[in-house]
Design a protein around this nucleic acid. Structure first.
Length: 425
RNA sequence: AGAGGAGUGGCAGAGUGGUCGAAUGCGGCGGUCUUGAAAACCGUUGUACCGCGAGGUACCGGGGGUUCGAAUCCCUCCUCCUCUGCCA
């Protein structure tokens, strides 16, 4: 959620940047925020003054009662009941105004970083770099992974349908081992890069959902356990970042670096189509996430560091990839700047998104109330960042599709120690 | 899941209707003393909002209520502990 003070201080800039997201008439939207904030302040002032008077009178009554002067006490009681009514009215107006303000703020996405290009959709994303050799398409009679997994019997979708439904595959044999190897490899690499591993809960309460911005924005995208009011996590970002909700850290503790492996659950309502076959889009998938909490001065340096970490994983897995800077139209609601990493699949003849690393600046920390004491002993909001490092299914798809050959599917060298075999045949 | 108990400042722990935002101890920070350190002593030490400021308001697990006045009384929810039950 945006900070009202920041909106006020950088009004023109905020409007200009929200235009990059195709927000209609940001001047009016942000103008309303400021108006409501002014109203809120005015109500608070009136209310506080009345309460100050009431407190003073109550004290007087106490003293009069003590000295036995009941009559006088009863006399001034009248004024307090008058004040009480007024305070009650103001109290209602106050919470209503505050609620209204929060509701509007919930609908406003993060202000895109200056480097975010304007644009409507993923076609406007900016390619930052490409790495690795893109497999040529001519000499490839490569099979897509949904054929390969059947051929080698390593992922079973039908079985998943029987147990749960579409989008919940069963990994079998070497497929299951490959999953486990990837998780361990990713966690080990994250640990080497200084991320402390955690295993968070995979169900979260409503408060956590609001704090990192999944609610109310993505309400329908999360599975909901109604009986207990808990949501299945769409990403480990939610529980890991929420570990620090309400915290006031010391500046020396920054940056905080955490990594965690979790399954992730997404309803993906209404997003099924031509490009979602096989492992391309699932309701349940595994992911290793990296999260950082940083000093505001360092967050963009940190974003680059995280991007390089993800890239190093792709290089070690010998996958050709590219890095995209997301345009305003494709940028996530809570993000100020996002880099997507995509690997190329020769069999599908297209790029597959395998990671997203984002800087949320203070958008999440403002909701999280995640702060730190700076050198001047002032309490200020920290910046939060996260990234997938990495999501498994499409990595698995790319490994299968890009490494297939006559003799089977060659496993990337770095995974062999984890797997105990070098080829799926 | 049932019965009982408890939730107070960074921690420990008083306070059961009126100068209580809250005693005291520990810890933290600053200082005195010391060649330095420790000890001792003195001072200071929660968060948020409003206000140029003086200052004001709110917060004693969350929400609601009673009262002129609530940490204190009532209702409700949450969490933790103990016992019983159940169970990876």
């Amino acid at each position: 959620m945006l900070q009202v003070n920041e909106i006020r201080a950088n009004f023109a800039h905020a409007c200009e940047r929200l235009n990059a997201r195709n927000i209609e008439n940001p001047e009016e939207l942000l103008g309303n925020v400021l108006k409501l904030e002014d109203l809120r302040k005015q109500i608070q002032l009136d209310r506080d003054n009345l309460q100050a008077e009431s407190n003073a009178i109550s004290k007087q009554i106490g003293q009069l009662m003590k000295s036995g002067n009941r009559e006088e006490a009863n006399k001034i009681k009248e004024r307090t009941s008058e004040i009480k009514q007024q305070v009650k009215t103001l109290e209602e107006r106050y919470s209503q105004t505050e609620k209204e303000l929060t509701q509007i703020l919930y609908t406003i996405p993060n202000i895109p970083h200056a480097s975010v290009p304007a644009g409507n959709s993923d076609t406007d994303n900016e390619v930052v770099l490409e790495n690795g050799t893109i497999p040529s398409l001519e000499d490839s009679n490569k099979s897509p992974h949904w054929d390969l997994i059947k051929k080698y019997d390593i992922v079973d979708f039908e079985l998943g349908v029987k147990i749960t439904g579409a989008g919940f595959p069963v990994y079998k044999g070497k497929g299951a081992k490959l999953q486990r190897a990837l998780v361990n490899f990713f966690l080990d690499e994250a640990e080497k890069a200084g991320y402390a591993e955690v295993q968070p809960p995979i169900l979260i309460n409503e408060e956590s959902g609001y704090a990192t911005g999944q609610l109310p924005d993505k309400e329908g995208q999360m599975y909901f356990a109604q009986e207990d009011g808990l949501y299945l996590i769409p990403t480990a970002e939610v529980p890991i970042t929420n570990m620090y909700r309400g915290s006031i850290l010391q500046e020396e503790e920054l940056p905080i670096k955490n990594t965690g492996y979790t399954p992730c659950f997404r309803r993906e309502a209404g997003s099924w189509g031509a490009h979602v076959r096989g492992l391309n889009r699932l309701h349940q998938f595994d992911k290793v996430e990296i999260v950082q909490i940083t000093h505001p001065d360092n967050s963009y340096k940190t974003l680059d560091e995280m991007s390089l970490h993800v890239q190093s994983l792709l290089q070690k897995l010998e996958l050709p990839y590219r890095v995209l800077r997301l345009c305003g139209g494709d940028l996530g609601f809570t993000s100020a700047l996002t880099f997507d990493m995509e690997v190329f699949s020769a069999a599908q003849e297209r790029w597959l998104e395998v990671s997203s690393v984002s800087n949320f600046e203070t958008y999440q920390s403002n909701r999280l109330k995640l702060r730190f004491k700076n050198k001047d002993k002032k309490t200020v909001l920290a910046h939060t960042l996260n990234g997938s490092a990495l999501a498994l299914p499409r990595i698995m798809a790319a490994i299968l599709e890009n490494n297939q050959g006559e003799e089977g599917i060659k496993m990337p060298k770095v995974l062999v120690p984890y797997l105990g075999f070098d080829t799926i045949k």
